[in-house]
């Protein structure tokens, strides 16, 4: 069984995030593996671990990321959890890709991995903490022509029957959906508790290489990705004026009254 997990290297939310020339600045020293992707990795690893020994020996989990070399830090983080193989797709021609271009590139990588060994599942996190769009998994399923099982708070894969079943709670709608494998699944942080890396894996991850692919390695037309393929263009990005210092009141018995005054004064009640 082969499971592919697309992951994203995102700016640390605690760092000073900014745009330059209408693109998000990706400072190599301040990036991190998108937190939700750890849940996708955990889901993939635990499915493989549920297989019998022979099937397990013939299985692997491959992470794929589309980014510059800095993103190796994110791939290594997944190695520390137990991922077998990591691919980074780097190409100047990918800069400025929108959701569609990103999904198209990731889909091409999944197809290439599938040419080696059939891919049974693609598992992603349900959103990335930088863009918060949570639409790339949908595009990815559409590009691959596979069933989409998105925003899963529970995921059960029946490896014998070759089906995946997800539970999702979206506002007021509760759903249980099922599809045959191969399928594209996106998981929420309810799906599992990501494991902590053990010492052995941490040491091994340091030396483990990350494969680098470029657009030339993928079956994707260059004009359909990157800036030239994008259907949206960020035309303006401006920092908001710094927030005025918060008005801070230390409660000495009248904090509630002060809060009420603030709300009344600003016509918020």
């Amino acid at each position: 069984m082969r499971i592919v997990v697309p992951v994203k290297y995102v700016p640390d939310i605690q760092s000073d995030r900014a745009f330059e020339d209408c693109r998000l600045v990706r400072d190599p020293s301040e990036g991190t593996l998108n937190e939700l992707d750890e849940h996708a990795v955990e889901a993939a690893l635990s499915i493989i671990e549920s297989l019998d020994d022979d099937a397990r020996a013939a299985s692997d989990v491959v992470v794929v990321t589309m980014a510059g070399p800095d993103a190796d830090a994110a791939v290594r983080k997944t190695y520390q959890m137990g991922v077998d193989r990591g691919v980074r797709i780097s190409d100047e021609g990918l800069e400025g890709s929108d959701y569609a271009g990103t999904a198209r590139t990731l889909a091409a990588a999944v197809r290439r991995l599938g040419d080696e060994t059939p891919v049974d599942l693609v598992i992603t996190g349900m959103a990335a903490l930088d863009g918060l769009g949570s639409v790339v998994p949908v595009y990815l399923a559409a590009e691959l022509g596979l069933p989409q099982l998105t925003n899963a708070s529970e995921l059960d894969v029946d490896t014998a029957a070759r089906t995946a079943r997800v539970t999702r709670d979206l506002g007021h709608v509760h759903e249980v959906l099922e599809a045959p494998l191969p399928a594209v699944v996106s998981v929420s942080d309810h799906a599992n508790q990501p494991r902590y890396p053990n010492f052995k894996l941490i040491m091994a991850a340091r030396k483990k290489p990350v494969e680098e692919w470029s657009l030339a390695d993928l079956d994707v037309a260059a004009e359909t990705v990157g800036e030239s393929g994008a259907r949206t263009r960020t035309s303006r990005a401006e920092p908001r004026p710094p927030r005025p210092e918060a008005e801070i009141v230390v409660d000495k018995g009248e904090g509630g009254t002060a809060l009420a005054d603030f709300l009344i004064r600003n016509e918020l009640v």
């Binding site: 409660d251 509630g256 009420a260 009344i264």
Partner: peptide
């Protein structure tokens, strides 16, 4: 507090009922 416009340092169990009564 870093992204707040207005903040009260205090116990919510004291602050909120007092604010509710004033409102």
């Amino acid at each position: 507090f870093e992204i707040a416009d207005f903040a009260v340092v205090g116990d919510l169990a004291d602050v909120l009922p007092q604010a509710a009564a004033a409102i």
